[in-house]
């Protein structure tokens, strides 16, 4: 009994461990190893180059641009989405007729396939015939080059991301808002605190952990940005919307510069690991409370 009792958890973990070993642990190791070689495929005919691929990344204008774009996108999109989510959560915090319906409908963009989202917005952004420019022209404003002005393209993608994922930030923040006990406010009201002070001194601090989690999860997701860019701009115009994921994709599946692509992938995984540490720390802190 005791022996089988000791074995049982491992037996239960086996399927998951097998899947992770084959589909993540082994690929991770292989990526790490390949990042040290110059190769267009696997290890056959590969030449060991040490850290040359990383040096190359460091020197590459395109990689640096991809990193800059990814960071800018992540920060801006996250801030906007959390702000929008907070606004929505505050708006829907008090019950009113039709609130359930509104909440369900608001979630719709979030569950759509990114490809469907991209299809819609690519059509909307069309310079000559797009819905957005048609609207602008109808009120006498000249059309905006949403996707082909290099200074604007990334912001257009931020707009799409905001539309699609603000509902997600809303969900998290709303959950947090529901957990704030109402008597806290009662006390504050008795003390004569106005709505702004109640928001600033009570709601915001109590919500802070939820805002943080929302921001963290959104930034993790933004950091991976691939689908939208792939189908909306292909990284252009110029390098204006190139992201690190796109960079890895192009090096790996178009140029077959597997070594360089793996090096960039390693950089991404390290960043993901750091984010995981931050996330885990926040979870542990939450558990300790």
């Amino acid at each position: 009994m005791t022996a089988s009792r000791r074995l049982l958890p491992w037996l239960l973990l086996t399927p998951a461990l097998l899947i992770f070993a084959g589909l993540t642990l082994y690929p991770l190791g292989r990526t790490l190893a390949l990042s040290l070689f110059a190769t267009d495929y696997g290890f056959e005919n590969a030449k060991f180059v040490g850290l040359e691929n990383f040096q190359e990344l460091w020197d590459s204008r395109f990689f640096r641009q991809a990193v800059t774009n990814t960071v800018v996108f992540t920060v801006v999109a996250t801030v906007l989405e959390v702000a929008a989510g907070l606004g929505l959560a505050l708006l829907l915090n008090r019950a009113f007729p039709g609130r359930t319906l509104v909440m369900t409908l608001l979630l719709a963009p979030f569950v759509l396939s990114t490809m469907v989202v991209t299809a819609i917005w690519r059509a909307w952004f069309h310079f000559d015939l797009g819905f957005l420019n048609n609207l602008l022209r109808a009120v006498g404003i000249p059309g905006v080059p949403w996707l082909f002005d290099p200074n604007l393209a990334l912001w257009s993608i931020v707009l799409v991301d905001l539309w699609q994922t603000a509902p997600f930030a809303f969900l998290i923040i709303f959950a947090g808002l529901r957990l704030i006990p109402q008597d806290v406010y009662e006390a504050a009201r008795v003390d004569g605190a106005g709505p702004w002070r109640r928001f600033r001194d009570m709601t915001l601090p109590l919500l802070a952990p939820y805002l943080f989690v929302a921001a963290l999860l959104r930034s993790v997701d933004s950091f991976k940005l691939f689908d939208k860019v792939y189908a909306m701009t292909g990284g252009g115009p110029g390098q204006a919307t190139e992201t690190v994921s796109m960079f890895v994709y192009r090096q790996g599946f178009r140029f077959f510069d597997i070594g360089l692509a793996s090096a960039a992938a390693v950089v991404m995984i390290v960043v993901a690991g750091l984010l995981a540490v931050v996330y885990a720390a926040s979870l542990l802190k939450g558990a300790g409370r």
């Binding site: 992770f20 589909l23 696997g42």
Partner: peptide, 24 residues
């Protein structure tokens, strides 16, 4: 350890694993 690893995988960009996964 296991949950930490799961977390890293959850947060890692899929493209970063795609090349070796192709070979698997």
């Amino acid at each position: 350890v296991f949950l930490g690893f799961v977390l890293v995988i959850k947060l890692a960009p899929p493209i970063a694993l795609a090349i070796p996964l192709y070979q698997v």
